[in-house]
Amino acid sequence: MAINLKEMSARPELLVGGHRSCAGCAAPAILRQALHVAGPDTVVGFATGCMEVSTTIYPYTAWRVPYIHCAFENCAATVSGVEAAYRVLQRKGRIPADKKINFIAFGGDGASYDIGFQSLSGAMERGHRMLYVCYDNNAYMNTGTQRSSATPRGAMTNTSPNGSIISGKQQSRKDLTACVLAHNIPYVAQASVSNPIDFMRKVARALEIDGPSFINILQPCHRGWGCKPEDSIELARLAVETRWWPLYEVDHGRWKVNNKPKTVVPVVDWFRIQARFKHMVAGDRDGILAWHQEQVDKAWTELLEKEEKSQ
């Protein structure tokens, strides 16, 4: 599906203004982009988190599509129930046979990598027709920036501060995209808020699939990462250009790297503009910067190999 912004802009907004996310938080843009592709016949499920809280403060809702939130750790299970209801009600003739509804579950990295990992895994394994979108901002941001399993090694958060003995998060991140891919589902992709056309094309592809699909989209949190609000998108772009967050998709086993940066930008250039890495850039006492660059280079080589082998 070719993404045509001009055509899209003529259609009604399905996530309207008046929600209360922080100024400069790009996460609502992700939601808008997904809905511009999915259209009004879409049910959105949300895990507890920044977007859930800020878009639905009673009696105000920013949503103009059906929206359901239950709790933090169960968005995928909740949407499983909605999707199962759709199937049976359609079978029983209570929903017209030709009425297709998209099901999109959204969760942050806390909800997807951590507390809702089991629920996500279960829903993917059961094969519900559902697109799960994780908007990964690398920490628990709704509760005030605590480390999650998506937080990069070395990064400062309020539960992994830069102490005099222990400096930042000690562990490396979980590769959730790979974890979900291991469920052998038809479509898995990584996207970035800096590349909206790429993300929207991926949403379109995922929604074509009669089964589960997953997109992990990087979404910088300027509060948690420590940068200016207007730089959110720029930060995501640099994550892609340093190859720290490669854009790729695996469509029925076929790997494709969607963005191959022509010039290699060192990871430290990305770290440098974020307060959460300030201590590492100032003096990398644990060698974490070098470790990150090694990891990025290794993962990039492996990614290209997977792409080549799967053709």
């Binding site: 750790e73 169960n74 299970a77 199937r87």
Partner: peptide
């Protein structure tokens, strides 16, 4: 002709019930 969801925990069982019942089932 019930749609049977064999979930991975009771937590998800009740969550799926929440979703299905909200959907009108």
């Amino acid at each position: 002709d019930t749609e049977l969801i064999l979930v991975e925990s009771e937590h998800s069982a009740q969550s799926a019930c929440f979703g299905a019942a909200s959907a009108g089932a």
